[in-house]
């Protein structure tokens, strides 16, 4: 379980996050929705120990992420594309990531196969398309067979076949008891996939709950989204 408790992030005089509180539970796909700049990435970066909150906590199974000794065995994450150095081949990127967490080398071939990049293993990360970069990021996230996945805009750049594929992958990951937290500003992809919704606007959580409850009273998720986020933002 991923828990966010009263996260506040201030940069200079700007409030990036104000009292962000929600949970992502095991066995469920939680979609973290909001317009660009609403604070989705900041929240996820704080969870992963990359950014420091001004106050509040973000915990993984009750522990700060930074205290995990081999984090990839607990949480796999993708932020902003693959994050691989552009001049390093895909396979080499996965190899060092695996080594850093004491993950057996054979997993590299397995995850490449799993995300459909086996043929691109020797291609430098900088030459991969946006969608292939997403797949490489996901491969790294899956290396340690984690119990949670944290994905920032995972469908960005994927073609329709890729979107369908990631949907199936995340669904079965959650059905096997895993926790999935994914951010998106695209509602179409989310509506068919998410069990729970967390909606953020202007750094504040404006709605949380099961998909059908959050969208109750609105004709569609899209209508719910615009109604919720336009009220919440300023």
């Amino acid at each position: 379980m991923l828990t966010f408790d009263d996260l506040v992030k201030r940069r200079g005089s700007r409030d990036i996050l104000s009292g962000v509180t929600f949970r992502a539970e095991p066995g469920r796909v939680t979609a973290f929705l909001g317009p660009n700049g609403a604070g989705k990435s900041s929240t996820l970066r704080i969870l992963l120990g990359l950014d420091r909150p001004t106050s509040g906590t973000a915990l993984v199974d009750g522990q700060p992420y930074a205290s995990l000794r081999r984090p990839l065995r607990v949480v796999g994450s993708v932020l902003d594309g693959s994050g691989a150095h552009r001049s390093r081949p895909a396979r080499q990127h996965l190899a060092w990531v695996a080594r850093s967490n004491g993950i057996p080398r054979r997993r590299v071939g397995e995850v490449l196969e799993q995300v459909g990049l086996a043929d691109a293993a020797r291609v430098r990360a900088g030459r991969l398309s946006l969608g292939m970069g997403q797949r490489l990021g996901l491969a790294a996230a899956l290396l340690g067979t984690p119990s949670a996945l944290v994905l920032d805009e995972p469908v960005n750049g994927l073609d329709p076949e890729g979107i369908r594929w990631i949907r199936g992958l995340l669904r079965s990951f959650a059905d096997d008891g895993g926790t999935v937290l994914l951010s998106s500003h695209l509602m179409g992809e989310v509506a068919s996939l998410a069990d729970d919704l967390v909606v953020i606007a202007g750094g504040r959580i404006v709605a949380t709950g099961p998909l059908d409850r959050v969208t109750a009273g609105y004709p569609s998720l899209e209508d719910a989204f615009f109604a919720l986020t336009s009220g919440g933002a300023r």
């Binding site: 970066r45 992963l48 120990g49 990359l50 992420y65 930074a66 205290s67 995990l68 984090p71 990839l72 994450s77 932020l79 902003d80 594309g81 693959s82 994050g83 691989a84 150095h85 552009r86 990531v97 850093s100 967490n101 990360a125 900088g126 790294a140």
Partner: peptide, 19 residues
């Protein structure tokens, strides 16, 4: 410096090795 080149590889580095 390679950690701060395009795509900011440092994010992956610190995510997989938080210390």
């Amino acid at each position: 410096g390679s950690e701060y080149s395009a795509g900011r590889p440092v994010a992956v580095t610190f995510a997989v090795m938080p210390r």
